[in-house]
Design a protein around this nucleic acid. Structure first.
Length: 569
DNA sequence: GCCGTTTTCGGCCCGACTGTTTTCAGTCG
């Protein structure tokens, strides 16, 4: 994806400029541009073609020229020149925790240290001693940093981060003096993956809280331990930051600590224009406290409606909130059913009746049991004979159920040519046909896109499941021309899925937002293969909310009778 | 390098913690 490539180049330019000690505002301009590009729902190529690059916040004349240059030539000359101006390894030194641009510059100028290997040798040989500004403790921190980098943990999935955080929050609530406890950071914004965990607490006894926090059972190392802020590393090498403030600052601190960074910066700009100052303690006019007890109150002071954390990325939400025009985001209670559920008829662990009972308990009104189709042998895909038996079981179950309907579904294979592995005569009898790719991932972007489009055009395919095929930590998403697929999906009234399975989250937030812009309605499904996985719907919901979706953008918020009409092409 | 109902030049968010340089720079978020 060209957006990611260009964002990465801008970020590297920022890092090189940092090491060279250039103007910090110029550096920030590159960083901001990189971040804003990553948040775009549309491809830069398209935006450039229509001459709209400078409409992107943080992109001016110079950066739009650089983007155009990259689109035309595949490179940016200024970046190539910059790269040559410093040894390549210097950038990797920046990845070491506690080592920043000033230290890198110092190490290079004083000791000709060009990469991590050089640095390790220098430390072992005692060369760092005697350098101005570096003493025993700094050397120790750098050594620790290198060690940490070597076994640096990847980002966690949203689900992993949620579970770990719940453990911390529970322990913190029990500490004497503690009043409010909340997660913050990218977890509170519900990003699909999370690196660090941020926790905010209000307490009568802040020092006691800090002392207790750094001694909690999961803690391995203490990174920082101050009066109001501490950071630790857990036994799984996850960094957890904890901040404590007074009650009256809880909302302000929550805004500050939740971010995103660019969101905070824009808020503070707005405040300055109004003669106010925003920090983590509140909104102030001169020295006087104006607001900050709650987030609602703080945003109201700045003339805005409440902005849900999921939207706080400086992606246009501030401007809409100022006009009181934010969309009402979909909520868990809007979900009326799950349209992608497996049973032990194929590779699930529970019977249809058990899965249905789980759905009833969640307050749903319907569920589609979508077991695999005949060609997916590894998952015990159903033969035609099996299908008839399964349908009878569903009919029997439906007769017994009140206020709940089991839909007869299937998850069919999209083969390497884009064909479906049941014939039309079989497909026509299903209430819901979900189609997916489970093989042939290595095809080109064009081939994969053609397959998807052909599947959308199939008269009976209603939902395309996990369109990008990503499996966190195991398989990268394959490349697709999403806009082309969405165009056909809109024409054929086919729906794309937000798959809630914690390792998938596919479509992701950006894809979902693009689908909404293109007028394609989505389904939020769990793909549950066991009863307890029905609860993962909250992670799919998170992607939907981050993608600006309202209940009306999602088909499984519809009452059953309207859903069934929607499911006819 | 970006940006503009005070500005096309002169600003650019704000603060905690650490280590070291006894008053602050570097790093981080």
């Amino acid at each position: 994806m060209i957006n990611t490539e260009i964002a990465e180049i801008f970020r590297q330019i920022a890092q090189i400029l940092e090491i060279k000690g250039e103007n910090v505002f110029k550096i920030r301009a590159y960083e901001r541009a990189a971040q804003n590009i990553e948040g775009l729902t549309e491809g830069l190529k398209n935006i450039a073609k229509e001459g709209r690059l400078t409409e992107i916040s943080g992109i001016g004349k110079d950066l739009s020229n650089k983007i155009n240059e990259f689109i035309k030539t595949g490179r940016i000359q200024a970046y190539e020149d910059l790269k040559k101006s410093i040894p390549g390894g210097l950038l990797e030194l920046l990845n070491i925790p506690s080592v920043g641009p000033k230290t890198v510059k110092l190490l290079y100028e004083q000791l000709k240290i060009k990469n991590i290997l050089d640095l390790e040798k220098a430390i072992a040989g005692g060369k760092l001693k005697g350098i101005f500004g570096i003493k025993e403790k700094t050397i120790e921190n750098i050594s620790k940093g290198i060690e940490l980098l070597n076994r640096s943990s990847e980002r966690m999935t949203l689900a992993q981060a949620t579970l770990l955080t719940e453990e911390f929050l529970k322990s913190l609530k029990d500490i004497p003096g503690v009043k409010e406890v909340s997660c913050a950071g990218s977890l509170r914004r519900q990003k699909d993956t999370v690196r660090d965990i941020d926790i905010l607490v209000t307490s009568d006894k802040p020092q006691d809280l800090m002392d207790a926090f750094v001694r909690l059972p999961p803690v391995k190392d203490i990174i920082a331990h101050g009066e109001t802020k501490s950071a630790v590393r857990t036994k799984d090498d996850v960094q957890v930051d904890c901040r404590v403030v007074e009650d009256r600052s809880f909302g302000a601190a929550l805004v500050y600590f939740t971010g995103a960074k660019n969101f905070n910066i824009k808020l503070r700009h707005l405040a300055i224009k109004k003669g106010l100052k925003v920090n983590e303690y509140g909104v102030f006019r001169k020295e006087r406290f104006v607001s900050g007890r709650s987030e609602e109150e703080l945003l109201k002071t700045l003339g805005m409606q409440y902005i849900p954390p999921e939207l706080r990325e400086d992606g246009g939400e501030i401007e809409l909130a100022l006009k009181n025009k934010l969309p009402h985001l979909i909520e868990l209670s809007d979900i009326k059913g799950d349209l992608h559920v497996h049973s032990n008829w194929s590779d699930g662990s529970n019977s249809i009746a058990e899965m249905v009972e789980g759905c009833v308990k969640r307050g749903y009104r319907y569920a589609a049991i979508t077991d695999h189709s005949q060609s997916l042998k590894v998952a015990h895909g159903l033969s035609i004979a099996d299908l008839n038996k399964k349908r009878l079981e569903i009919e029997r179950l439906n007769k017994k159920l009140r206020n709940f309907t089991v839909l007869f579904g299937t998850e069919v294979e999209i083969d390497s040519e884009g064909n479906i592995d049941y014939k039309d005569g079989v497909l026509k009898d299903f209430d819901v046909v979900v189609a997916a790719i489970h093989s042939g991932f290595k095809q080109s972007k064009e081939q994969l896109t053609r397959r998807m489009i052909k599947a959308c055009k199939n008269k009976y395919v209603r939902i395309i499941a996990h369109p990008f095929g990503r499996l966190w930590g195991a398989r990268e998403p394959y490349e697709l021309d999403l806009d082309e697929i969405l165009k056909v999906a809109r024409e054929t009234n086919t729906h794309l899925e937000i798959n809630s399975f914690p390792d998938r989250l596919d479509l992701n937030d950006i894809h979902a937002h693009r689908a909404k812009e293109m007028g394609v309605k989505l389904a939020i499904n769990t793909d549950a293969h066991a009863l307890e996985q029905l609860g993962t719907i909250k992670y799919g919901l998170a992607m939907a909310r981050r993608g600006w979706l309202s209940a009306e953008d999602v088909i499984n918020t519809l009452p059953l009778d309207i859903l069934l009409k929607e499911l006819k092409k």
